[in-house]
Amino acid sequence: MDIFVEHITKNYVARETGSPAALDDVSLHIRSGELLALLGPSGSGKTTLLRVIAGLEFANRGRIRFGDLDATGIPVQKRGVGFVFQHYALFRHMNVFDNIAYGLRVRERATRPPEAEIRRRVEELLSLVQLATFEDRYPAQLSGGQRQRVALARALAIEPRMLLLDEPFGALDARVRKDLRRWLREIHDRTGQTTIFVTHDQEEALGIADRVAILKDGRIEQVGTPDEVHDDPASPFVMTFIGDTAALNVNIRNGAVLHAGKRLPIVGSSAGEGPGTLYVRPGHVQLAQTAGASLTGRVVSLRRFSSGQRAEVRLHGTGELVEAELPAGSHVNSGQDVGVNLGQVRIFR
C-alpha cells in the first residue's frame, strides 16, 4: 500500500512541553512494502506525523492518501492501521491471547470471524512473534521485549494496510533493542507489510530501514537510503545528526578552501564563495607526522569507541576540536603534537 503524505500542516501546542510542535507543509511518499524510518530529535514532529497518518490526530491542512483512497477524513477505526505504541499500551486486564484477539473480536458481526478462526489466527501470530507458550500470561508478567512483541502481534492481527510504530524500542535496554530491531526487519521481510517507524536513534534508523526521512522543526530535511543520508547529507543538520562530526570554520576563495588563512588540499568543492563550515566524520580524519600535514594540533584525550579508539585533537591556532578514528595498532599519546589530514569532507555555507 503506497502512502502519500501531501502538504500536511499542523499547528498546536504540545501538552507536556508547551512548546510548539508542528508540521509545516510536509510531503512524503512511502512506497508499498518498504520499511521507512522517521528520524529526528525530540520536538521535530516525527511522532505527530505518524499519528496524523494513523488518524489519531488531524492536520489543519493537507491530505493523506492510501493508494487511490483519500484517507484524510477517515476515522482511525476505519483506517486499518496497525499501530504500536512506545509503552506498548497492552490491555493490562487481558491476557496475551485476548490482547491479540481484541481487534478481531470488536469487529461488527458481519465481518467478525468465528471464534475458531480467531483462535487459529492468534496462534499463528503467537508463533510468528515467538510467544506460543505465553498466551495465558498477563502483560505485567512479561518482560519489556515480550510486551512489545505482543503489541506487534496485536497490531498485525487486524491485517492492517500498514504498520506504524512509535519509538517501538525506546523503552527497552540496549541488548533487547538490538535483538528486536533485527527481528522487526525479519518480520517485515516475511510479511512485506508497508512499515513506518519513528525513532530518534540514528543507528537504529540506518540499521534497519530501507529509507530514512529526517525531520527537523516540523519539516523534512532529507529523504533517502541510509547510505545517501549518511554519505551525502543535504544539510548541516543532517550531517551532524547522522553520526559524529567535527566542524571547522573555513573560507572559500576562488575555489580554494582556506582554514585560518591556510589552504587545505581539498578538491571538488562546489559550495560557492565566502565563509562556510567544513564538516568531517571521525572516520575520515587521519593523524600523521606534523611535517607536511595540512593541519596540526595536540591530542587532548583518547577514548574507547565500541571496537576502536578515538583521539580528540585541538587544532593549533584556532583551538577547534577534531575527532579522529585511530586504526588498530596506532600509538598516539595524550598531549602529543600530531598532523591532521582530512579525507572526505562536506562544506556548507
Partner: peptide, 12 residues
Amino acid sequence: ADEEAALTLGAS
C-alpha cells in the same frame, strides 16, 4: 494510549 490502541484496532 490504551484507548488509542483500542481505537486503532477498530473499536468504537
